[in-house]
């Protein structure tokens, strides 16, 4: 090991010692923020339950979130899936996305990538960027849908109208496996979708 390597190693260790606890503290802080006592007050949880039972899609999704995360109530994926479904069937895009993830993972529902793709699609059509990205992922692997790199590229591109760096790099990875004509086709389809849905492409 030469001097340069020793210096690099030393700065590496110092940075890790300094930064790791800070990051952990930040991580723990964000977790504790999610679980403030007020949001778990029995009256608040009961209100969500009542609203959910009365048919409020947002309350149904909120209640599903509590069960999915084990926040304020005991974690129960089956109840979470049930409430996500009720909310999703009313058209709540976040609930549709979450329900898609449940089917993708088989969280107390039968693992079913085709159902996952269908719920991702419904949310994606409502401009849910996470669902659009997820749908792109399923098309890239042929999970629950036929493998189709053009559609994969298209949905990933749609998921980020401003084209952030991560998306740009994912698209570059996909493009390596496609012909220039396919990339061009996918770009045009995505741009049409973005414009038609009132978003501004970059």
């Amino acid at each position: 090991m030469n001097r340069t390597h020793r210096t690099e190693l030393l700065s590496f260790i110092i940075l890790a010692i300094v930064t790791v606890p800070a990051a952990l503290a930040s991580c723990l802080q964000s977790q504790s923020q999610e679980q403030t006592p007020d949001s778990c007050a029995p009256a608040h949880v009961k209100q969500i339950e009542q609203d959910a039972a009365s048919g409020s899609a947002s309350a149904q999704r909120e209640l599903a979130d509590l069960y999915a995360q084990g926040r304020c109530v005991a974690q129960d994926y089956a109840k979470a899936a049930s409430w996500y479904r009720r909310s999703a069937e009313q058209g709540d895009p976040e609930a549709q996305f979450q329900l898609g993830e449940f089917f993708l993972e088989g969280k107390d529902v039968p693992q079913d990538p085709a159902q996952a793709a269908e719920w991702f699609r419904r949310a994606a059509e409502q401009k849910h960027h996470g669902a659009q990205y997820a749908l792109g992922g399923l098309y890239s692997q042929g999970r629950g849908v036929p493998k189709d790199l053009v559609k994969s590229y298209e949905w990933v591109r749609i998921s980020s109208p401003k084209l952030d760096r991560h998306t740009r790099d994912v698209l570059a990875t996909l493009a390596k496996k496609m012909t220039p004509a396919q990339v061009d086709d996918a770009e045009k389809q995505a741009e049409t979708w973005i414009v038609a849905h009132g978003e501004t492409a970059q």
Binding site: F12, A16, G137, D169, V170, L174
Partner: peptide, 19 residues
């Protein structure tokens, strides 16, 4: 390369070093 989806499980055998 930037991936779109996960495709592999591995087991950690030493702490991760991050700088």
């Amino acid at each position: 390369d930037v991936s779109l989806t996960p495709d592999h499980w591995v087991a950690l055998t030493k702490p991760i070093k991050v700088q």
